[in-house]
Design a protein around this nucleic acid. Structure first.
Lengths: 339, 339
DNA sequence: TGTATTCAAGCAACCGGTTGCACTTACGCT
DNA sequence: AGCGTAAGTGCAACCGGTTGCTTGAATACA
């Protein structure tokens, strides 16, 4: 097969244990021996077998990533690639590998998770979502494996490490941004309320509007499925109200693209006829027409920090369960105008 | 630690080997024994340790995915999530895991690859790109590990399994589509020619135009970096030509979004003033304004088939190096009009 | 020169499975 | 009863590392 520690040991006239210690650069071995063994390793083209090391060390140097059910829509958004980038960046530094769940449905993803955990394929897990009636997080708690969730956990939040934006605050600021521009009729277009993030943003919006002692008219709060026709319908409903909104808070920039297209079909111009502020600051908002004012949720950082927390936790399972809030910033582009 | 095969064996009064055979449902074991052992496993909450199994079996049931250098732009396109979805779908069926390279730069990705291969972390690899002067593919060939590339390999293509579209043909059809609409001044906006796919599409475009005995005026072939300003510049250049194009072939739909925005700023309307056909059929083309006519490259299928080929190859390393071409289809939306 | 001390390296058990082969038992047949 | 055979299990080596403990050699010191 391939060159093992024993082969190297034989050729260098030392014991396998010595070679192992050379690999880990143990101080127990003299410089002279190290040098010699290293030469032989080089010569023979030796490389550690990670599986064997994992088995002996009981540690995989791998973190598992649990995806939102990868039903087309959700995985497509820019969230996924960007958060992976962030996680990767840190894993790369610490020489950790990344393993993905492969399931499509919630049920399959749960099974994948169990396999990863019980099969000891990973040292820890990152959960890419927080949602209601989720079985994964309770399972992870019970199993005792280190994990962190991206988003605010809905249960036992004290015991669970998480990395999140302050979505309530962020949505409040976004709404305030429009209010400060003089808008008073602001509608909210959100997503599936199963997910904690959607609910939080909705709440932030409500708080901001109520904070100015304004009413939220019936029909101003919408949920959009990721679908152009549904987008058109929502826009149609909104615009046929007695007093249609003059500004919109849209919870994701891919959805914003839909809304934009729907508005344009009705010949409603952004920002002159309608202001819009959106979330996530993916490339899409940068290149949309017009480029969109957006609250940057720093997805890369969310990924990076979650990996950071997780790796710390893996190294010291007793550590204090901290959680980190990634600040959001509004990046102004051309989709908002004073009333 | 956790329950091992030996613990189960002890409790069930059988040998560890028997338990192992029960797990793999070997016909050597009687039904009666199987039943009993399974009961004990259940009772003790036993689960196989995959690392140990990997070591013994010399197989990881894991496939590695080598990313295009994940420099922001490239990973962001819809290609990545969608191809992963395809790969996942098949891996899930065969109970394979997915492991990602984590590096950012080409150099880091190469290192990751070497680690995966030499550390025996994976049974096979999928390379998500094909590009010039790439070190990864030659390394994989030399290492002897099973792998398949998505895209057409530029070296030793006979020996390398790959899954790809016929990009030349696809670009030709796309261009023909515009030609058949009566357009004669068609410009091409492509991407980095380092990547095989970009070059192929450019060639297809050229073939189609030349096929009609038409000239390609100077300045009709552009490369776009993923950047709004650059997009504006390109559009400006194109439109200031003595005879500006009446139609565009754009090699990626995210780039198309840029072009769309740039055109709109110049008050050029799609499709009335300018027709556009693009590639990839991601959600973006579906919800853009206007929705874009696009050649669907069936990215999901590319991923799915590549995983399919790879797993076959892993199971039988001697198999014939086939390659598969995924057909493309033009999806008509509202971005093209007869001249 | 003899003994205590230190440093380097080796032995062997272990991580948790798999598997070729040997062994036991029971049964069938002459 | 005697023997061959097949079915069902167990033994033990192996996958490729790691590591506590022991041994052996070299050095220091009296």
């Amino acid at each position: 097969m391939s060159v093992t520690i024993k082969d190297v040991a034989a050729k260098a006239n030392v014991a396998p244990s010595t070679v192992s210690r050379v690999v880990s650069d143990s101080p127990l071995i003299s410089e002279k021996t190290k040098r010699r063994v290293r030469e032989v390793m080089e010569e023979m083209g030796f490389h550690l077998n990670y599986n064997a090391q994992m088995l002996a060390l009981q540690s995989t140097k791998t973190i598992g990533i649990i995806m939102k059910n990868s039903a087309k829509e959700s995985i497509i958004t820019s969230f996924f690639p960007e958060v992976i980038r962030g996680i990767s960046a840190l894993c790369s530094k610490h020489d950790f590998s990344i393993s993905l769940t492969t399931g499509e449905s919630e049920e399959e993803i749960f099974t994948d998770t169990v396999k990863m955990v019980r099969g000891k394929r990973v040292d820890g897990m990152i959960v890419l979502y927080s949602k209601k009636d989720d079985k994964v997080v309770p399972y992870l708690i019970e199993s005792g494996i280190p994990f962190v969730v991206i988003g605010k956990p809905l249960i036992e939040s004290g015991k669970v490490m998480f990395v999140d934006n302050d979505n309530v605050q962020a949505a409040k600021e976004a709404t305030d941004f429009l209010l400060n521009l003089g808008h008073e009729k602001i509608a909210f277009i959100g997503e599936d309320e199963q997910f904690e993030v959607s609910e939080a943003r909705l709440n932030g919006y409500i708080q901001a509007v109520k904070g100015k002692n304004l009413d939220i008219p019936e029909g101003f709060i919408k949920n959009i499925q990721f679908d152009l026709n549904h987008g058109k319908q929502i826009v149609a409903e909104l615009m046929s109200l007695a007093e249609p909104p003059t500004a919109l808070v849209v919870s994701d920039d891919l959805n914003a693209l839909i809304v934009l297209t729907a508005l344009s079909e009705k010949n409603i111009k952004v920002p002159t006829d309608m202001s819009m502020i959106v979330f996530n600051n993916s490339v899409i908002s940068k290149v949309a027409n017009p480029p969109l004012t957006t609250v940057d949720t720093q997805i890369f950082q969310l990924g990076y920090e979650s990996a950071h927390c997780l790796i710390e936790l893996v190294k010291d399972p007793q550590m204090f369960r901290k959680s980190v809030i990634i600040p959001t910033v509004i990046v102004e582009r051309n989709s908002c105008l004073p009333l």
